[in-house]
Nucleic acid binder design. Sequence first.
DNA 1: ATCACCCGGGG
DNA 2: GTGTACGGGTGAT
Length: 716
Amino acid sequence: MPHLLDIEYRDGHIILWIKQGSKCTPHRVGYYPRIYLECPVHNRHLISTLPQVRQVRVEQKITSLGQEPQDVLAISLDDWGGVFNLADMLEQRGWRAYNVDLPPTRQFLLENGLFPMAQLDPQLHLDDDQQTTDYSLPELTTLELDITPQSGRNPCFSDPLRDIRLGDHIFEGMPEADMIENLSSTLKRLDPDVILTHGGDSFQLPYLYHRAAKTGASLQLGREKDEPPPQNKGRSYFSYGRIIYKPGGYQLRGRLHIDSQTFIVKEGGMQGLIDLGRITGIPLQQLSRLSPGSAVTALQVNQALKDGVLVPWRRNLSENFKTAEELLRSDRGALILEPRVGIYENAAEVDFTSLFPHIMVTKNISPETVLCECCPDSPERVPFIGYNICQKRLGLIPRVIGPLIKRRMTYKKMADGGSEEHRMMQNVLKWLLVTSFGYMGFNKARFGRIECHESITAYAREILLQTMEIAQGLDFDILHGIVDSLWVRGSGDPRELCDLVSETVGIPLELKGHYHWIVFPSNRNNRAGAMNRYFGLMTDGKMKVRGIELRRRDTPRFIRKLQHDMLDQMKCASTVDELYNNLPSVLDVVRRYADEILSGRADPEELVFTTHTRHKLEDYRQKGSQAAALYQLREEGVDVQPGQAVQYIHTDHRSRNFHNRVKVAELIEPGTLYDRQKYYDITLRAAESLLRPFGYDREVLDDVVMGSEQMQIEGF
DNA sequence: ATCACCCGGGG
DNA sequence: GTGTACGGGTGAT
């Protein structure tokens, strides 16, 4: 049976790439995409005279969630090219444009009920169900592509090619142009459906196109000539509290270029990507390069369009900053307790799975249901803040999130049978659920509303408080609690607690596990409990560690290994007494690592910090390590975008010139010396993170290490 | 002391 | 195209 592999739009046509048997062929269909306009209908004749407008019709549509349908103009376009200018011009007249950022491919799929990887009948009509979790896929042929330049550490476009690997084929030891043309002809012969790269967007493909242009070789990666060679530039954007650098995507015609270094592919694999493509209706090459937040928005947009609701263009785009009042109101987040500092035996951890999504569904939280005008006297009130919630209809968000939760649960069950594919599929859905909450409070979200965000966290606070009460009723001590998790200790059975709470609250509370022992350290500066740091040994033998250095991506490998080795020693203990008895062997580990640092034997490569820059060099107001690293890289002619990582070691921390305090990893040579005093300090600090709860602070550790007889330090 | 700057998830 | 807020830590000024 044929399947829809990919879809593109150009020159007024939709091109469907249909995979049947071992062949994949393009089918062209004329198509006129549409935008909508809210304006007095007598303007339709005026608008139909505009260039590129093909037809104007009056339709009944809902322009805002929760409102009644009204007359709007549906404007069909000959071409999508100038659509933003057109929409801009129309909005400048005081009218409102809709569906402007709904690309023609998605419009076509939605109108025809199609989706990527849908099964079709021989007449190419849909023979599939978009919502099913049990579907058949075509046999896709996949080839991995790897491109290596001649230089080692810091590859750049001026380096000539060393080799090209395509599946089992290797092209090397020949002129560059021959390698590239061999690649093109081999691709044509093997005709894979998918080209898989590891970082193809960020370096390998732009580099390959550059080399092809330079040598005059003809390069074709897609099933049709890729023209013009993609030139889309990368971008930096703000997400999850940090700048993320996103390279421009290199998409092919009739063949899927999938870069494994994208979020959705990393989290869901090819199976998760296809599954998401089916339910979102976004072509796979685009989808693979989106954030989970965009994917969940797509689901909401699809549902809205099905309901006859139009999607406004550039909603809230001007509101980049919240007002002081908004900030004040929205910062009442979920509940976080201050942990009871100390070391505990026999603790249990219980978690609500997908707490926020469950709240949205069971409490009917949606932009049009919270504070709705139709039920001002609704008995359903948001705790603490008293908002009324609609009783008459189920909101858009619950209608999207409900099926998503179900779908994830289906895959989770299948994954419990050991299926890796289903594990990946449920995993990527988990991320959609997680971000569906955050989007509610995002001022640029399509269907977000701050009152929804507030309501969800208010319910979450109430539910966690309720859970604590029930736990205390069952004689549990509460050790710690974060948003949707609770750590308890007591003589009772935590399973009983989970059952009782699940029953009372209506949202499943799961027993995450028991701890032989768990440690909640205090802050480094005061005696209070640190809210996001703990580590403990679970009864299944696994160590759970949060917040300390080894969890951070900027931590050098050396420090990570130190803490891993220390924890490995602690792992031998299954009681607090044994833990204390084991401390000498933990201290031995610290001594060994400190010794290695002080003697100068440590490998500089192991000492590299990796941090992601948030600004360009000029915009750094403080001359710290990041700025120094950027400066050194610029001297080498390397341009680093905000969001890209820089790597450096401390070479002379006390130097008066900040340029000399660090050295970027790219410049490390065999003779490069690191700052021993500085790294000794860092090493002891990392050791202290794990040992302070046992009474070993920085000074004690210093004595332990320096006091040992075998220490002979040169240079001190 | 205060400000600037980084990280945080799961398996 | 793009969740925020905030706690925790380190280092510069």
